[in-house]
Amino acid sequence: MWKILHRIAKTGIVSEPSPALDDGGAECTQIGAELLTILGRALTIREVDAGSCNGCELEIHALNNPYYNLEGYGIKFVASPRHADMLLVTGPVSRHMAFALRRTWEATPDPKLVVAVGDCGRDGGPFGEGYASLGGVDKVIPVDVVVSGCPPRPVELLRGILAAVRRRSP
């Protein structure tokens, strides 16, 4: 136990200052407050892998590491779409995942946000469209914001999530 406590004390707090938004808008510490105004609560996200290469998943995992302080802004990944405000969807959407993705979207309560992640989530990326790939996420469900990149860096993901929330701003 002593070693564990020592390790915690030695590591300290590694979280970094939040990134600026692309449009030169507020820092996301302020977005934390905005989240409460806009949604009336914290932002909950359900991640759906609709056919990715798993590279985007690695970066979404990284977004949850201590450097990015996600929960500090009131953003949380949840296990059920019924608990979610936002779907974070990686693609391309494989033909086999289209049904599950649509049902996940239907299970998410309104008003809901959809962020399509990566070049593949945008338009199918290098996988394109074919007998087994439908292409971008918007082929199956409506998309609010696209975060391009292959895969997008965690900071870019954060910017995309915040940009989607701000679009809901009254």
Binding site: H96, M97, G128, G130, A132, S133
Partner: peptide, 13 residues
Amino acid sequence: GYKHKGIDKRFET
């Protein structure tokens, strides 16, 4: 098989 995207076919292009 849920993530089958037809990569082998895609290679041909």
